[in-house]
Amino acid sequence: MNNTLLLYSTTDGHTIKIIERMAARLKQQAFDVQMMPIAQATQAQIARADKIVVGASVRYGKHKKEVNQFIDTYIASLNSKPSAFFSVNVVARKAEKNTSETNPYLQKFLSKIEWQPALLGVFGGMLAYPEYGLVDKTMIRLIMKMTDGPTDPDTVIDYTDWEKVDKFADKVAALSL
C-alpha cells in the first residue's frame, strides 16, 4: 500500500508547493509517490494507486470545476481506496476556520459531492497581491477589507502551517482500508 497518487488543482501554484511538501515527507517513509495536476490523471493511474490524495485551492469561494468533474468521473475508485482531500484557502488563516469541520468552503464542497475521503484537511493559502492581475487584485483586496485581512497591494503572506502539512502527510501514510 505504498503507491500514492497526489493530485492537485491550483489557481496560483501554492497547492503544488503543499503537494510537493507532502510528497517529500511520504518519500522519506518509503512511499512511491506520483504527483500531477488533477486534469491529467488517467483511469490507469488511478487504478494503480493504493492511495489517492487530492488537494484543491479555492478562489472566490469555490474549488475549480475540474475537481468536481474528477470526482464525478472517478467516484467508484475514490470510495474504494484509502483517500484524502485537502482544501487550500486564505479564509483558513483564521483559527476559527482552519479545520475540516469549521472551514465554510470545505463544508460547502463536501455537501455537494458523493466522495467520502477517509482524511480531510484545510490549509491556509498564500496571499500575493503583486502576482495577481488587476481584477483579481481588486476583488481579493475588497474581500480582505470585508474580512479584516491585509489590503496593502504589496502584501505577500504565506498562511500555510507547514507543520500541519507534515502531520497531514503522516496521516496519509497511515491510511488503510
Rank of each mutant, 00 (worst) to 15 (best):
A128E: 15
L142Y: 08
L134N: 04
L127P: 06
F86E: 07
P82F: 07
G125H: 05
P82I: 08
A92Q: 02
S77H: 11
A95T: 02
D136Y: 14
A92E: 00
A84V: 08
K97M: 01
F109I: 10
A84G: 08
D136F: 15
S83R: 09
K94S: 06
A76T: 12
W115R: 06
A118C: 05
S111R: 14
S77V: 08
K94I: 06
F123S: 08
Y105N: 12
E114D: 14
F86W: 11
K112A: 12
K94A: 08
N79S: 11
L119G: 04
V122K: 15
M139K: 10
S111Q: 13
L120F: 06
K112G: 11
V90R: 03
V90C: 07
G124I: 02
L110S: 11
E101V: 04
D136H: 14
R141M: 12
L119Q: 03
F123D: 05
V88H: 05
A95Y: 01
M126S: 13
Y129S: 09
R93I: 03
Q116T: 15
S80R: 11
T99V: 05
A128T: 10
L110F: 14
L119P: 07
Q116D: 08
L134P: 00
I113T: 07
E114S: 14
V88Q: 11
G125T: 00
V91C: 01
A128R: 15
E101M: 07
F123T: 04
G121Q: 02
P104M: 11
V135K: 15
N103R: 04
G124M: 09
L110W: 10
L142D: 02
A95E: 10
V88K: 07
R93F: 13
S80H: 08
M126T: 09
F123A: 09
T102D: 08
F109P: 12
S80Y: 07
N98M: 01
M126A: 12
L78S: 08
V135G: 00
L127R: 15
L127A: 12
D136W: 15
S83W: 03
S80C: 08
E131S: 15
N103K: 06
S87Y: 04
G121M: 01
